[in-house]
Design a binder for these strands. Structure first.
Length: 818
DNA sequence: AGCACGCCGACT
DNA sequence: GTCGGCGTGCTC
């Protein structure tokens, strides 16, 4: 019988729209399967690992399909549910499947011809077990520092290249480049053990005597060893641990090894710690927590998504732990999403204590080997609980039962560059729908979007508004800085109240956190007397002052007018400029409190790999008295000795030129306030503001989220913003300024003519030229349920046309922008 | 994304 | 006369 002619539609991991069709050679008919990777030649000489998206027997019209070269995988690396998730992301966030694939797969799984291959220095090669081809490649790698996949394809047949590299990777004889760039993490752990000789008591007596006389440091180390093994009841100790216990004296260790007291044995350890899932200890829930837990379960019987609005220090984590445990009993997988990598490392120890060591962290900063290892273990269902940042969404879960998106309001859930510009929280909602899983969104300050969905009955809502234990709510003091200015009691950026409180706190040997959002640098004009700030008449966002043109400009719609000569509210003629950062605050603090140990925490001081953790450790160990920081310090950190939190300039939060300014101000101030006071100690929060009766401040002070939500919702409805309307932000980029203006104007025109969306712009963003490309932004507002999809569809068509018409321009789409 | 093809300036 | 600059068009 004639064999079947099969065609495979594949995704190429490049930002290309659409799929590409390859013909399957008869010899591979039995091997192809959706979700497996195949090596394909794409273009003149490039080889990529593409992913089989579908299989069929329809020859493509209009061209002759190339043959695919080989099937890389023995079993699919991506399952059907993942493919459906990719489709959804590519359609909702208006990007290509290739871009989603590129973001989703760890790079070990996406070779291409330039991928560099190196020998793995840590692994000894068993030459007997190599095939002829493998031998050839290993030999070539010994002569060269590295080979590209293209180089390898010149040594052995092109068809065999990818499968062979994959086989060598699996045996860990080779590594691919990305890993080497990262600092290589040790695969091996060394243990210190006693030698056989030490069992000879008499010999040991002599050793002791000798050490006592001549080598006290070695004796100290030996004693440390004994006391440790007595405590742990193990017979050996990790080398690093022993060194730490005995004053990091590695020469003493060396000497003891030479005296044949110690031996050092080295073991390989999985990079990824996947111990057994233990039952672990049981978390005892408070009555309030238990009640929330029960409410969540009953809400899940009707709704797939539940929002848990639990105030800071209400103890949400304990509830999560119990829900996770219950999911595991049903033998289903759990995904616990957090917006920041730093938070995942904070919480993992806690989870492991209760749920055993089989919990794994996954995020983009892991090295490639670790990522691939986790990928495979999730695929084989050897990992049941993953805690991770955005990218953890893309792991090959077979059967998710429960998803948590913690701190769901955080804007870092949204990726903005490169595409896919997805929001991990919203994508998680879709992912759980695909799996028939339940998803819990947790926050002390829910996003407008989520609370709107909950209030409208689309999501379940559970509220946990009592603090855990006896922690009293902090006392909030709002300081009117314009009054202090009038009275001349302000010292630079500090009110007399704040200075006095800081002094008092330091005296009590307690710690202070000062919060200043430096990002709000965009200068804002403000009346020096009544604090009136000019707002845009169309958008309700504060206008940004442009010095060169002396104009006030709205960065949303482009509306601009001359900068006012006097205050529209009180007629005062002096308008002052707002905007100062953490650095300035740190500098001035040092003058006011010369004895205090002060540190600053923002993106500038936490750029290094461990600098973030170091700062936190230092502060936690009370090596610092005052920590000045941006919103970074607002995020879920718990310090036990902080009794004072100061918000240096709340105005800059309210005046940020963005329609979410109020929402963010509410969230940030509430979250930083949550850092003040612990256990039985009542903390204090001082908010410096020139408008002490600002409505948002009143809501914060009353700790009344619902009232805030209601008033903010009215504003959002009035100006057609989310959660009632959806936004799509379009960025046009061009090298040529005039062409950019023309294209952006034409595009805006076309969108206005063909869609029902409200169109703002085109407008230059704050930074209007990046890497020699000029930028212009257009914002669409579309009525939520009815028209967003239609608008996107038309937008895709228009975009296709414009890409043809202006081939050198870049058009980017960002649905639900942050 | 990458690479080839193609059309204009400074060089053997 | 050629080498090479990067604009633009295509990749199954």
């Amino acid at each position: 019988m004639e064999p079947l002619t099969i065609f495979a539609d594949v995704i190429i991991p490049l930002p290309l729209p659409g799929l590409y069709t390859y013909r399957v050679p008869f010899s591979l008919n039995g091997d192809v399967e959706i979700g497996k990777r195949v090596a394909v030649q794409f273009g003149k000489r490039k080889i990529y690992s593409a992913l089989i998206y579908s299989l069929h027997e329809n020859p493509p019209a209009g061209y002759e399909a190339k043959y695919l070269l080989s099937v890389i995988d023995a079993r699919p690396v991506v399952n059907q549910l993942q493919l459906r998730l990719w489709e959804w992301i590519s359609s909702y966030y208006m990007c290509t499947l290739g871009e989603v694939m590129y973001a989703a797969l760890p790079s070990v799984l996406k070779f291409q011809s330039e991928t560099r291959v190196l020998l793995n220095a840590e692994k000894e090669i068993d030459r007997e077990g190599l095939t002829d081809n493998e031998f050839l490649v290993i030999e070539a790698l010994e002569k060269n520092k590295y080979l590209t996949l293209h180089d390898i394809s010149l040594i052995i047949d092109l068809r065999n290249t990818f499968p062979l590299v994959k086989a060598l990777l699996e045996k860990a004889y080779i590594v691919i480049e990305e890993e080497v760039e990262d600092k290589y993490r040790p695969l091996k752990v060394s243990y210190v053990n006693l030698t056989e000789k030490t069992k000879d008591e008499q010999w040991m007596q002599e050793v002791f005597a000798k050490l006592e006389r001549k080598a006290p440091r070695q004796l100290e180390m030996l004693m440390a060893f004994y006391s440790h093994i007595a405590r742990t009841r193990e017979n050996r100790i990790e080398k690093g641990m022993l060194l730490r216990l005995a004053g990091n004296n590695s020469s003493a260790l060396q000497a003891l090894v030479e005296k044949e007291v110690f031996t050092i044995e080295t073991e390989e350890r999985d990079r990824v710690n996947t111990g057994e899932m233990a039952e672990g200890s049981i978390v005892q829930l408070s009555a309030a927590q238990q009640s929330s837990h029960d409410q969540i379960l009953s809400a899940f019987s009707e709704k797939n998504v539940v929002l848990l609005h639990g105030i800071t220090s209400a103890g949400k984590t304990e509830i999560y732990i119990n829900l996770i445990r219950e999911t595991l009993r049903q033998d289903k997988q759990v995904l616990y999403l957090l917006p920041e990598i730093a938070l995942t490392t904070q919480i993992i120890t806690r989870l492991r204590r209760y749920l055993g060591s089989g919990i794994v962290i996954y995020h983009s900063k892991l090295n490639e080997q670790e990522r691939a290892e986790i990928w495979n273990k999730v695929l084989e269902r050897r990992i049941q609980v993953v805690i991770g940042a955005r990218s953890a969404l893309f792991l090959p879960y077979a059967d998710l039962g429960f998803v948590i998106a913690d701190e769901e309001h955080e804007n870092s859930y949204k990726q903005f560059d490169p595409a896919p510009r997805y929001n991990a929280r919203d994508t998680a909602v879709y992912l759980s729908k695909l799996h028939g899983a339940k998803i819990l969104l947790g926050s002390a300050t829910p996003s407008m979007e989520s609370y709107f969905n909950a209030a409208g009955g689309k999501y379940g809502l559970v509220e946990l508004l009592t603090r855990y234990g006896d922690t009293p709510a902090p006392e909030l003091v709002i300081v009117d800085v314009s009054e202090e200015r009038r009275k001349k009691t302000m010292k630079s950026h500090f009110s007399s109240v704040l200075l006095k409180e800081i002094a008092g706190t330091l005296e009590k040997k307690e710690q202070v956190i000062l919060f200043q959002n430096r990002r709000g640098y965009a200068p804002v004009l403000e009346c020096s007397i009544c604090a009136w700030v000019p707002h845009c008449k169309n958008c309700d966002v504060s206008m940004t002052y442009h010095k060169t043109s002396d104009l006030l400009r709205c960065h949303y719609c482009g509306y601009s007018h001359r900068s006012p000569e006097k205050c529209a509210a009180c007629g005062n003629t002096y308008m002052k400029m707002l905007g100062f950062g953490t650095e300035k605050i740190e500098e001035e603090l040092a003058v006011f409190f010369p004895a205090a140990r002060i540190a600053r925490m923002d993106t500038d001081t936490t750029r290094g790999k461990n600098s973030y953790q170091n700062l936190i450790d230092q502060f936690e160990n009370h090596n610092l008295d005052i920590l000045v920081g941006t919103q970074m310090i607002a995020k879920g950190l718990d310090f036990t000795r902080v009794s004072l939190v100061g918000v240096v300039n709340a105005d800059s939060l309210f005046n940020y030129p963005d329609f979410r300014a109020s929402e963010r101000a509410f969230q940030l101030i509430t979250q930083v306030s949550g850092r003040a006071g612990r256990r039985d100690k009542r903390g204090k929060v001082i908010i410096q503001c020139s408008k002490p009766d600002h409505p948002v401040l009143n809501h914060i002070k009353a700790n009344d989220y619902k009232a805030f939500f209601k008033s903010e919702l009215r504003e959002r409805i009035r100006y057609n913003y989310p959660p009632v309307f959806r936004l799509i932000e379009i960025t046009v980029k061009a090298r040529d300024f005039d062409q950019l203006n023309r294209a952006a104007a034409d595009l805006t025109e076309a969108i206005r003519a063909q869609t029902t969306a409200i169109v703002l712009g085109p407008e230059f963003p704050q930074v209007s030229r990046i890497k020699n490309l000029y930028l212009k932004k257009i914002i669409l507002k579309a009525d939520k349920e009815r028209s967003v999809n239609a608008v996107k569809e038309i937008l895709r068509q228009i975009a296709g046309r414009f890409k043809k018409e202006y081939p050198s321009l870049i058009f980017q789409f960002d649905p639900d922008p942050q």
